[in-house]
Design a protein around this nucleic acid. Sequence first.
DNA 1: TTGAAAGCGCTAACAA
DNA 2: TTGTTAGCGCTTTCAA
Lengths: 356, 356
Amino acid sequence: VARRSTIRDVAARAGVHPATASRALNPALAGRITEETSARVREAAQALGYTVDPTARSLRTRRSGFVGVVIPDLANPVLPPIVRGIEETLAAHGLAVLLADTDNSPEREATLVAQLEARRCEGLIVATATRDSPTVRRLAGGDLPTVLVTRDADGAGLPLVAGDDDAGVRAMAGHLLGLGHDRIAYLTGPPELSTTQTRLAAVHAALDGARGRGGLVVRHGEAFTAPVGRRLAAELLRDRRDVTAILAGNDMMAVGVYEALADAGLRCPQDVSVAGHNDMPLVDRIAPPLTTVAIPQREIGVHAARLLLERLGDDAPPPERRLLPTRLVVRGSTAVPNVHASAGNVHGAIPAGGPH
Amino acid sequence: VARRSTIRDVAARAGVHPATASRALNPALAGRITEETSARVREAAQALGYTVDPTARSLRTRRSGFVGVVIPDLANPVLPPIVRGIEETLAAHGLAVLLADTDNSPEREATLVAQLEARRCEGLIVATATRDSPTVRRLAGGDLPTVLVTRDADGAGLPLVAGDDDAGVRAMAGHLLGLGHDRIAYLTGPPELSTTQTRLAAVHAALDGARGRGGLVVRHGEAFTAPVGRRLAAELLRDRRDVTAILAGNDMMAVGVYEALADAGLRCPQDVSVAGHNDMPLVDRIAPPLTTVAIPQREIGVHAARLLLERLGDDAPPPERRLLPTRLVVRGSTAVPNVHASAGNVHGAIPAGGPH
DNA sequence: TTGAAAGCGCTAACAA
DNA sequence: TTGTTAGCGCTTTCAA
């Protein structure tokens, strides 16, 4: 096994001092070195197959070249495209991604963030935030550049990139009102998540004033999953058989709502309209195809990475909240209330709003 | 911003030499140090909030604590659970995951693997292998411990963890034969992937001898995607209207087949049965629910990580090919040929085979 | 523009 | 069991 060649080997071969070789190989120092010397060094490096040892460089420069990405659960279909967007963007800037999956546990979040700090990450992109996460609060106070994605933390003042849920949910509410619904239920997740709060606030803003007051029922569940959606919908249908539309906090919950409707012998959309949020893969193929709000996942990742890159620079701009445009996607799960739909379902996509 | 404390600070506070402090903090050296000294050092470390600098340690020990995970496309729903399994298992052993997404490009594969090597990863888990990947061939010859997942490389002799596709496909073929199908088509991906080869070989083994010879038609496409599945199925139906069952290389292709059938005015499963492979999320909710082969994704990740951990040790065992049991999942997309199905669809899961 | 010297923080080898 | 010494490979002063 041949020993890996070092900067000394390169220097020796080029007949210069290691420091000179180092400088010749550093693009930032171009111009401060003779082109001839530089060429000789590059040639030597090439011949020896030299690549810099990032560990040694890190030790010296105090820059690790790593960014930590903290996610709640990679199996959540919203996240992979976001992670991809982050990874691509950072890789283009020579930064590598250290992936940490907390499995939705605050304790694991604390541990993993501590480990990422110990590994001297240059920055963090955090998708795990609960509104009151102590770990995130600590990060907000510290000097490790941090950007939140998808989920916000109260009062932390950290930069955030997310879909414009407010506009998306308002567009969805408008769509339902336009169809003539006035007994609408909103099934959502735990209040600890900003996602829950933001979407719920938008629902209230859009529906509280509309038509006969009291037309909106809200139910919280402990997670954004199909089983929880099913349970909430079942309970709802027991109490309030008169609802004409059920808005789910996300697509998985909507799938659970489908089950509860089937259990109750109700048809979607003829008896009850259902809508989701996220537009995850295959929801356009389920029965009925789900009306939902699409969020620009990869773009969210790209923008989060860009925001972090900005903050890694010398003059970090003030924390920015960047909300990317969502899109209302109308499919077959929503229809005019109490009317037997017969013709083909409406398909289409309507912009729901831009950054604000 | 307070300077981070170093081992020297800890040593000074504990009144010992830095080397002693280092030893006291190293669990592997327990017993070779006075318990009293050790306690004093730990106390000092605690008081100062000391955490070792992994960069400096790496430089000295020549171990980075990183494992590179190279995947073709994180947006492919099969992969996230595998990555999770890997990440969890390695994290439990103090190893961090460096994620690299090649976007299915051999060039990016080469570049990213080179970068992971440059970063001194201790090992690699590679899911991008094409059967003849030069990059993977080079890794097989080198001394960087490498484990392949899901996709094998010809003659590289590298350890591999994957689902037992052979058993899974044979079980599926048996299921179709059992229903009475004899005009069966297999739509699959590019021959460069071992996935294609393995599954195709199993299809041949199970179907070539069965019933009237010539009953099997095979078509290759350039990718395992819905549009490709749709195109292949459309072409197939143009040439061979008599097929009674279409076996798709994976679930996404199967979804494309659904579209082609609808385009051709054919019903599934009444006119043509369709089956997939992978059992990705929501294929149980599409219309009709897809019969498919489930693969133990997270388990594959866990075993890949374990195999790598073994090889990181001093006495690496010989390369092992570990195939994990798959499961035939029968849903509503397969039925007896040429019979109008009316009753509820069959649901169930049958073990398809174990490791061999 | 280049060379010399030093040191990032840690731990392995050797000595006591 | 502990201390001493040295050096991992690199880059950045400082001096020429």
